[in-house]
Amino acid sequence: MSAPLLEARSLGMSYGSVTALHDVSVEVRAGQVACVLGDNGAGKSTLIKILAGALRPTEGRLLLDGAPVRFGSPRDALDQGISTVFQDLALVPLMSVWRNFFLGSEPRRRLGPVRMLDRRTGREAARSALAGMGIDLRDVEQPVGTLSGGERQCVAIARAVHFGARVLILDEPTAALGVRQAAMVLRHVAQARDRGLGVVLITHNPHHAHPVGDRFLLLNRGRSLGCFNKQDITPDELTRQMAGGAELQALAHELRTTPAADGG
């Protein structure tokens, strides 16, 4: 089997005496979805920032196509095909869909000595790129702010795919979304995977992760609880394994016993 697109080997990150991440390894292959699961404070954000080039790990290393690599900045990672969609999506709500789509990489045409924005190309390209991802927007001139949360997430994903991402890192793309919206986003994650991208999906929801994921990395308090293949683990087991699992059982037990204790 060929080398993974992106591989992290025993990453560690400490801020002074605080260890945010210790000995965490993860790999993502083309056409696969690697899910990173963990409760709040598990080290998900630290891991994503390292993969996106925003942080340099204090231990361990990153390999791109099997070769060691160091990202100096998020731009550097982006230039090598690692595209990260953070929770704020980097969209401007008051701007139209196509203007957002091409923000920072605007198509231009020459008009005499000056270069003008090529609005027609921008509109058409945005429309067809979105349609190619199965996102049917009635009007690419509408402000992004009028889109639903799920649609916005999809626009951000489609933009990353359009601009040549090989590895797509998604930070909690289904957080704060309703069931239908979350399903729509997951469908587009699968779509990106089917196009041969490697996807890293960060989430704290095992029920969102399990349907699309191929491998699952569980994090707790900055340490890996293990890495599982899809066939080796059920969503219920994922939930149990996550930090919440054991504690939820304890909580359920506690809630069952407390009234009885009061009554007695």
Binding site: F102, E106, V114
Partner: peptide, 25 residues
């Protein structure tokens, strides 16, 4: 404002400077 890249950036830096910065404006 409406027909150049700079104009697009003007809307972007006013609408959301952090988003604009993230995509390289």
């Amino acid at each position: 404002l409406l027909h150049t890249r700079f104009g697009n950036w003007v809307f972007a830096v006013g609408g959301s400077a952090p988003s604009a910065r993230q995509v390289g404006v």
